[in-house]
Amino acid sequence: MVDLSVSLAGVTLKNPIIPASGTFGYGREFAEIYDLNILGSFSWKGTTRDPRPGNSQPRIAETAAGMLNAVGLQNPGMEAVLREEVPNIAKLFRGPVIANVCGFSLEEYAENCARLNDAEQVRILEVNISCPNVHAGGKNFGSDPQSAAAVTRAVRAAAKKPVFMKLSPNVTDIAEIAKACEAEGADGLCLINTLLGMRIDLNTRRPLLANRTGGLSGPAVFPVAVRMVWDVYEAVGEKIPIIGCGGVSSAEDAAEMMLAGASAVEVGAASLRDPWACKKIIEDLPAVCERLGVSKISELTGGAHHGA
C-alpha cells in the first residue's frame, strides 16, 4: 500500500494531485463529472475584489501540444465567492481548498487574503502575482523580485493562513523571485503560471486572440515547468515547499515534477481535454510509486537533486 499523502506547510493532502486554478472554476462543473473527494485539494479560480467580466472573444487558441488562453481573470468577485461559492464548495468537497487570490494593488491583495481568514475550508492561499500592477504602469507584480517581495509582505501581514506565491515563468531568473518571496515569509511557492504567447491568423493577418497575447499551457510547457521547479528547489527547496504546475498530463509527469522538487502537483489544461484526467492520474500514482520503489510518494520530492 503506497502512502500518497503529502504535506504543504502543515496542511496534509491525501494525495498530491490538485486541479489548477482557472481550469476548475469553484468545483461546480467537475462535481458533475466525478466525486471531488478523490482529490488532494483544488485551487479555485483566481478571485479579485470586484467582479470581472474578462476579455472579449476569442479567448482560446490551439497550439502545438497545448493552448493559449486570454480569459482575463473573469470571476464573480470576492464577495460573491464568499457568499455563494464557499458554502457550495463545502457541499461538494470535504478536503482542504486552495484559494487563488489576485489583485491590482498591494492593498487589494491584502484585503482579499484577509477576507478569507474566516473561511475554514480554505487552508492555503495561492497568491497569483501575474496580475498587472495598476499603480506601476501595468507591469506584473511577478516580473521582478522587489514587486514580488512587496506582495508577499503585504499578504503575509494580512493573512492567517499559509501563503503560497504563484510565480510567473515570464522572467529571466525565477529563482531570484522565489528567494525574494521566501525572504518575506512566503510559506510556499506554486509554479509555473502560463507562458506568454501569441498566434496570428493567416487569413485575417491579425492576432487570433482578441487580447492579442495569451497564456500558453498544456504538455508544451511541461519541460519548462520541470526546469523552473528544479531551479527554485535548488534556491529555496530546503526552506519551503513547492507546488509544481505546468503541462502535467499523467502520473509519470506528476512523479517527474516531484523528483524536480515539487511536494504536490497541479493539473490544469489536461482536465480541459480529458475531464477525468485528475482521477486517472490519482488512480495511476500507486503503480508509478511502486515502479520507482517508494512506499511514500513524498519521498520523491527533490529526488532528482540527490541521485548519483
Partner: peptide, 21 residues
Amino acid sequence: ARMACGFGACVGCTIQMADGP
C-alpha cells in the same frame, strides 16, 4: 465560440448577456 473544455470549467467561451457573463 472558440472553446477549450466545452463543459463550463474554463470560461474561455464567455460572452456578455443581459444578466451577466
